[in-house]
Simulated scan of single mutants.
Amino acid sequence: MTIAVKSPYSSEQISAWLRGLLTIAWADGNFDEQEKQSISAIAQDELVGGMNVESYETITPEELAAVFGKNTSIAENFLRTAVMVAIADGIYSPSEDELLHKLCEALGEPKNLLESLRHTLENPQPVEAASGAASSLIRPVKPPIEALNPLRDWLDGLDVEDPKVARFLCKMIPNQCPFERDVKLFGRKIVHIPPLCKINPLYEQLVGLRFRALTYLADDCKEDISEYI
């Protein structure tokens, strides 16, 4: 049985929030077929019924600021979820970095929140490659552990308070650490990709956020969460 839970946010704010997260998800332009289907389902289920994902319109930082205001609690919580979506696949891209910094400026949040995250972009480490093989373009993020501690604490401060946002997070964050794998060409290993939990220094924050979203849906909203497990 599902019960109606009063969200502290308006329908306009939640719509803008989800459009903003989808804009972040779209930022690096890297989607396999499963990701496209997942994002399409989110757009249809959590935004406007029947929305065509191909015609989806992104939202600008300025439009988000007009809805959220500057230096507000909802702006900060949105930015937390935006960071989570940006690093959910373990790779922090230049396009995601640029967009997140524009969001910080528009929403009145200090840009230094993301400096440690930018460190993962500027100091990538190549994954293990087979002997004699060219360096891989797939780069796990592995900054010094202590450099990310302030960002970890800030991300852990997010409370899940809206069913649509909770469902979005449950769909976007993987329910388990993807297995490591070897990429082979003509039967020869050219690169080894470690599991996501090894290459993403914020993986524990992602898992914790997903758990809080699941708990909120199950305990507060009385929703069946079996589809997310």
Rank of each mutant, 00 (worst) to 15 (best):
P110F: 00
E33W: 01
I199M: 12
C104E: 06
M1H: 01
P178K: 07
A166N: 12
R118G: 00
D182E: 14
H119I: 10
E161P: 12
D219P: 05
E227H: 03
A65V: 00
T58R: 11
D224P: 07
L169R: 02
L79I: 01
S136C: 07
D219F: 06
E105M: 04
S15Y: 08
Q205T: 00
R188L: 00
P140T: 01
P8Q: 02
L18W: 14
V183P: 14
Y203G: 00
P110H: 12
L79T: 00
K184N: 13
L206M: 13
D219Q: 10
T2D: 03
L209H: 01
E122N: 12
A106L: 11
P140L: 02
Y56E: 14
G50C: 11
N112K: 14
P195N: 06
E109R: 10
A4P: 01
L151G: 11
F31H: 11
K171Q: 07
R212F: 05
V67W: 01
D45L: 11
G29L: 05
L79P: 07
D182L: 03
Q44N: 15
L114G: 04
N71T: 02
H101L: 07
F179D: 15
C104M: 12
K184R: 15
Y92L: 12
G132S: 09
A129S: 07
K6N: 13
L151T: 09
D162R: 11
R152T: 03
A88Q: 08
T2H: 08
S93E: 15
A218N: 10
G29R: 13
V141F: 02
L209G: 04
K164I: 00
L148A: 03
N52Y: 05
D153P: 06
A82W: 10
S93T: 13
S136H: 05
A130V: 09
P201Y: 00
R212W: 01
G50F: 04
A66Y: 03
L206K: 05
L209S: 10
L107F: 09
F211E: 15
G108A: 02
S135G: 12
S10K: 07
F68D: 09
S136R: 07
K142P: 10
T2L: 13
D45Y: 06
L47W: 06
K171T: 15
V67F: 04
V5N: 04
D97R: 14
I138N: 13
E122T: 11
L206V: 04
V127A: 15
E109Y: 14
